[in-house]
Amino acid sequence: MSFNVTIQPSGRSFDVARDETVLAAAIRQGIGLPYGCRDGACGSCKSKLLGGRVIHGAHQSKALSEAEEAAGLILTCCATPQTDCSVEARSVPGLGEFPILKMPTRVLAISRPAADVAVLRMQLPANQSFQYRAGQYVEFLLRDGARRSYSMANAPGNVGEPPAIELHIRHMPGGKFTDVVFSTLKEKDILRMEGPFGSFFLREGDKPMVLLASGTGFAPIKALIEQLKASGSQRPAVLYWGARRKADLYMHDWALQAAAEMPGLRYVPVLSEPAADDAWSGRSGLVHQAVMADLPDLAGHEVYACGAPLMVDAAQRDFTAQCGLPAEAFFADAFTSELDKQTGA
C-alpha cells in the first residue's frame, strides 16, 4: 500500500510507501524539500499539512511543539501518511539532482588544528562518481547501524587528486564516533558513508550574504566560500565566525587569507569568552548579536547559518523579528549532536 503526497504550491506529487516518511520518499524520488537532520531534532523540514492525515514518529518538542502540531504543522522527516495528503512546503531547486550513494571511503589524512577538532580528508572511491553541492553533508554508517553526520568543508571543485572530501569533527567525549576519531582512527582506515544529504547550499541571486558560523559550523561555510571564489561571484558576503576562545577559531588564518583574496568577502571573528592569554582585541559577545550590531537592517540580505542549535535558533528568531530579514531568506544547518537529541537541548 502507498499514499500520494502533493506538494503545494509547486504541484509536485509522489508516492509514499507504507511506513515511510514523507521526507524519505521525497529524497528517494528526487523531490526537493527542505531538511536538515532527518531525525526530528532541527525543525528545518517543518511544513503545513493542508489535507489528509499523518502520524509522527519520535521528535523533539523544540522542532515541533504540541501547539504547532495542533495548528497543522508537521515534520516531514517524521511524518508517515495515513491517507493521501497535501503539504505546503518550499521547493528547493536543484535538490535531488545528484544521486545518494553508499560507498567505502579511505582516510587520507588526519590533522588536529585545535585540541578538540580533527580535520579528516576522506578519499572518494574511483569507481563511483560522488557529486554534491557545497554545504551538503554525508553520514558515516557505523557497525551497529547508527549514523553520524558531517558536512563537506571543501567545495566540489576543490576535491584534489586523488579526489577527497574534507570534514571537520569536534570531539564529543563519550561520543560513539568521535572517541574513535580522536583515539584509534588512522590513515588508510576504511569507513562506510552515504550521501549527499541536506538542503543547505547557496541559492542563486545577487543579494548580499551573511555567512554565520559557530564552532565547526564553519565547515560548510568554508565550502560555500570556496564555491563563491571558484565561480568568480561578485556577491558581497561577510563571514561572522563565533567561538569561545581564539584557539577555537581553528582555521583563522584560512579565513583571513580568503578575505584578503576575495574583494567581496569580509571576515569578522567573534569570541564569546576570550581568555586573558588570548590577547584578543577583536569583537566579543554572541556572534549573532555582532551581526545585528553591524547590520540592523537585513531586509535585503540572505543569511546562511551553521553551528550550535542555540545559535541558529537565536539568529533566526532575532534576525526576522528585529532586523527585517524575510523568513525565506534564512538558510540553516544546525549541528545537532546525539547528546542534544537525547536531552532535547
Rank of each mutant, 00 (worst) to 15 (best):
3 F>M: 10
10 S>D: 10
10 S>Q: 10
15 D>M: 10
22 V>G: 02
26 A>M: 08
30 G>V: 01
30 G>H: 06
32 G>F: 01
34 P>M: 00
38 R>P: 00
39 D>A: 13
40 G>V: 09
46 K>M: 11
47 S>L: 04
52 G>N: 11
53 R>V: 13
56 H>I: 07
57 G>S: 11
59 H>R: 07
64 L>C: 09
65 S>C: 08
66 E>Q: 12
66 E>L: 14
69 E>C: 08
69 E>I: 00
71 A>G: 09
74 I>D: 04
78 C>P: 00
81 P>F: 03
82 Q>M: 10
86 S>C: 11
87 V>T: 05
90 R>L: 09
92 V>W: 02
96 G>A: 13
98 F>V: 05
101 L>D: 08
116 D>R: 01
120 L>K: 00
126 A>S: 15
127 N>C: 01
132 Y>A: 07
133 R>E: 10
138 V>N: 04
142 L>V: 12
147 R>G: 09
154 N>H: 14
171 H>V: 05
171 H>L: 15
174 G>A: 14
174 G>P: 05
176 K>F: 14
187 E>V: 13
191 L>P: 00
194 E>Y: 07
196 P>M: 06
198 G>E: 04
203 R>L: 13
204 E>R: 13
206 D>I: 12
208 P>A: 10
211 L>N: 06
212 L>V: 08
214 S>R: 00
214 S>D: 07
215 G>Y: 05
215 G>T: 01
220 P>G: 07
222 K>Q: 12
226 E>A: 09
226 E>R: 07
228 L>R: 09
232 G>M: 13
236 P>D: 12
240 Y>R: 00
243 A>V: 00
249 L>W: 06
251 M>S: 03
254 W>A: 08
254 W>N: 05
260 A>R: 15
260 A>Q: 15
262 M>H: 12
266 R>Y: 01
268 V>K: 03
269 P>I: 01
272 S>L: 05
274 P>C: 05
279 A>Q: 14
279 A>H: 15
289 Q>H: 14
290 A>F: 01
290 A>S: 15
291 V>L: 04
291 V>Q: 06
293 A>K: 11
295 L>P: 04
295 L>H: 15
296 P>Q: 10
299 A>R: 12
299 A>Q: 09
306 C>D: 12
312 V>A: 12
314 A>Y: 04
316 Q>F: 03
317 R>C: 01
323 C>L: 06
325 L>I: 10
326 P>D: 11
326 P>Y: 09
328 E>C: 03
331 F>E: 10
336 T>I: 15
336 T>Q: 07
336 T>E: 10
339 L>W: 11
340 D>G: 02
341 K>N: 10
342 Q>T: 09
342 Q>F: 07
